[in-house]
Design a protein around this nucleic acid. Structure first.
Lengths: 148, 148
DNA sequence: GCCAATTAAATTGTGTACAATTTAATTTGG
DNA sequence: CCAAATTAAATTGTACACAATTTAATTGGC
């Protein structure tokens, strides 16, 4: 890259994640999953029912993105969506048996993608620590109420 | 994040770049630039005319993404698009005077976003090296056969 | 010289992302 | 109480991304 983007950390994050997600997307096609559907299934525990809002907090996505993804996962048969009895505003999401089953196969997809990179164990850990730090502590969360 | 996404390097890259790009997008609005328009302008040198294809190679984007972005940058007045005389298939892209001017203001935007992260100089360099390595040597071969 | 193969952009179709708005349900304060 | 404020999802509008296809120009083989 013979230009100013060399020094842009943001561009490197953007381009790298895009390329890795492209690898995932190809490998996920046999399971009828997109990358967004994949992380949604990963974020759901086996026996929990969570709201769209909480799922969105785990994934850094809002209902505008999640609603169509979850509707498609429901059609495919991996999740179910049910209005909460206690609070009719909430939609409760949970994995079906098929969803739990497909989730067990997904670590293999992740392993295949990671094997394509020659990244060392040490680099992997470094990367994780730095990114978790930026994500969790530095960047302002959208819609967060300003402290008085 | 109390779930399996903890260990997913890809998810961390994805979520972090998304959040950082959201910061850029807000700060770029006064210049009538989206993030994609921003990296396109950064990738253009002052006095060069390059094709959509070469720009796409620098940005890891194809004509399907770039064509509408470049058309909008042309309307805004930052670039010009001209059919190549030597090869009528090619579209030559180059910065206008306004494009060169706005580009000089952009490092300030980048500085503002980076200031929000508490990332250290050392971490910054580590991150850059690892990401460049993944991006340039490991991943983006579109026709690569599946790993062994 | 001619036509098949290749190439560069543009176009098409699907699927995110996210801001902003809308709708419906719940909570709160006077 | 009960209208106003708040909240959760869904919807709307804009802007990517990328695979696949189309269109038009160039190249290559014979």
């Amino acid at each position: 890259m013979p230009n100013h983007l060399d020094n842009q950390l943001c561009f490197l994050l953007y381009a790298t994640s895009k390329e890795i997600i492209r690898q995932y997307t190809m490998l996920l096609k046999p399971y009828d999953l997109t990358y967004t559907g994949y992380i949604a299934i990963l974020a759901l525990e086996d026996d929990e029912q969570i709201t769209v809002k909480e799922l969105g907090q785990r994934l850094f996505l809002d209902s505008g993105t999640l609603t169509p993804v979850l509707k498609k996962l429901e059609v495919t048969g991996y999740v179910r969506r049910e209005r909460s009895k206690e609070d009719e505003r909430q939609m409760k999401i949970y994995l079906t048996k098929a969803g739990i089953e497909v989730r067990q196969k997904l670590p293999e997809v992740s392993r295949q993608v990671m094997n394509k990179t020659n990244i060392s164990e040490q680099q992997y850990m470094q990367l994780k620590i730095v990114l978790q730090d930026i994500l969790q502590t530095d960047l302002p969360i959208k819609d967060e109420k300003p402290g008085k």
